[in-house]
């Protein structure tokens, strides 16, 4: 049976390549070519894989109740939905509809991950951070004064993470719920966060060594000896205000413009 196939296959080859007619030189040449081709293919696949595993994730982070899941659903499905506290991540890979995208030419593909905001589940961002290309940090503009420390600590942890620093991951601080009366203006929020991170920087630097510490010291955020400001960071940190549940008429059908632009720029 198999010899039959072999014969048919040989017959299909051009005359010069049939085993009977091959000169030793030609055989070596063919073997060499095949080897080179194989290596090139392997290299191409490896590169592609590496690039595929590269940082294509967009993380939605922030405390509970900030509006991460609503934002996720707006970006993913273009609808505003009712949500409760998440206990697991929402994750989806899809093509982001952008200003120039049409049904035939879809926008860039994003891998969006909405992480639960609860303190006990916060560690989940560490599972994704190595392959993250952009981070959206959502906060609630109305409660920021009360939750300042918790927000700043989470933001600090993300900013000081070695992957964020090494990859210079761009970060957007999205001040949600800006339509409400109690909302603080973005500039004020920025100043508050900078002040709080400044304090955290000192207290973290003085922290006791951790068990089984591999000697990796967290780097100091910003410039030593100067008051902390987001501009000092290597990774770009931008601020934007938005209102995910906007009053009628102003609603963005597919998520706020600021976030779309941010993601579009990064990708």
């Amino acid at each position: 049976m198999s010899s039959e196939y072999a014969r048919v296959a040989t017959d299909a080859l051009p005359e010069a390549l049939r085993p009977d007619y091959l000169t030793p030189n030609a055989a070596i040449g063919i073997a060499f070519l095949a080897g080179a081709l194989f290596l090139a293919l392997a290299a191409w696949f490896l590169l592609k894989k590496k690039k595929g595993a590269k940082r294509d994730k967009v993380l939605l982070t922030g405390l509970s109740e900030a509006g991460k899941t609503v934002l996720f659903m707006q970006l993913r499905h273009g609808e505003t939905v009712a949500t409760h506290t998440s206990m697991e991540s929402n994750e989806s890979r899809f093509s982001l509809p952008t200003s120039y995208s049409t049904p035939t030419t879809p926008g860039p593909s994003v891998h969006l991950v909405d992480l639960p905001g609860h303190e006990k589940l916060r560690f989940k961002y560490t599972e994704h951070i190595a392959t993250t290309g952009a981070i959206v940090f959502v906060l609630d503009s109305t409660t920021i004064a009360r939750d300042l420390r918790a927000v700043a600590e989470y933001l600090y942890d993300i900013l000081v993470n070695r992957y964020t620093q090494r990859n210079e991951v761009p970060l957007l601080v999205l001040c949600n719920k800006s339509e409400l009366l109690m909302a603080l203006p973005v500039e004020k929020i920025r100043v508050l966060l900078e002040g709080e991170i400044e304090k955290l920087r000192t207290s973290r630097a003085a922290e006791i060594q951790s068990l089984d510490d591999s000697g990796e010291q967290e780097e100091l955020l910003g410039v030593e000896g100067e008051k902390f400001a987001f501009e000092q960071l290597a990774n770009p940190v931008s601020f934007a205000k938005c209102s995910l549940i906007a009053p009628a008429g102003e609603a963005h059908p597919r998520g706020p413009r600021e976030v779309m632009d941010f993601i579009e720029n990064v990708l």
Binding site: T83, T85, E88
Partner: peptide
């Protein structure tokens, strides 16, 4: 869903607080 998305919900009483810190489901 465990991700926090409400698939279907019916409120029989309007008095259930919707603020997350006081909502019984949250």
């Amino acid at each position: 869903t465990k991700g926090g998305l409400v698939l279907w919900s019916k409120a029989y009483s309007p008095s259930v607080p919707t603020v997350q810190s006081r909502n019984p489901v949250d």
